[in-house]
């Protein structure tokens, strides 16, 4: 039974992820709030779910010529070091604290998305006005 529920949660987050909306932000709260999965285990399930999907997405973007990978070492090398460091900090954090931090992170993400939406609408308005003029 739980197999089907977990698969459904994955499916829902996959649909959102496929539309480019960050499926993990749905999968992790669904697993922890509704299914009582611990914060660490929910994050682990999300990260592993993301890997195969990201490989498909990368292959598609590469075909479309959207990948520009030259000169990225300056970002990737420090990112790898801090990801290793912070993943061990994550593993050592109590589940309760990690869950609260993740909640704050979700709110920050939501505020960022609201700002993006506002910008999208104001750009659209300007475009319409330019076309009507």
């Amino acid at each position: 039974m739980s197999f089907i529920l977990f698969a459904l949660a994955g499916f829902l987050s996959g649909v959102l992820g496929g539309m480019g909306m960050g499926g993990g932000t749905i999968l992790i709260p669904v697993l922890t709030i509704f299914f009582g999965v611990g914060q660490h285990a929910a994050q682990a399930a999300n990260i592993i779910s993301f890997l195969p999907t990201s490989l498909f997405a990368l292959a598609r973007h590469r075909q479309q010529g959207l990948l520009r990978t030259g000169g990225l070492a300056v970002i990737i090398i420090p990112a790898l070091i801090s990801a290793a460091l912070f993943s061990f900090i994550m593993a050592a954090l109590p589940a309760d604290m990690l869950r609260r931090l993740f909640g704050v992170f979700l709110i920050v993400l939501a505020v960022k998305q609201i700002a993006d939406l506002k910008k999208y609408f104001s750009d659209k308005k300007k475009k319409n006005r330019a076309q009507n003029a």
Binding site: S2, F3, I4, F6, A7, L8, A9, G10, F11, L12, S13, G14, V15, L16, G17, G18, G23, L27, L31, V37, G38, H40, A41, A42, Q43, A44, A45, N46, I47, I48, S49, F50, P52, T53, F56, A57, L80, A83, A84, F86, S87, F88, M90, A91, A92
Partner: peptide, 28 residues
Amino acid sequence: IALFGYIFGGYIDMQIVVPTAVGSVAGG
């Protein structure tokens, strides 16, 4: 890289990981 933190902490639960990953790929 971050996976090592979860492996190290013993947080990989295959009964959760397998169905969510399968569902997630299909949903994607």
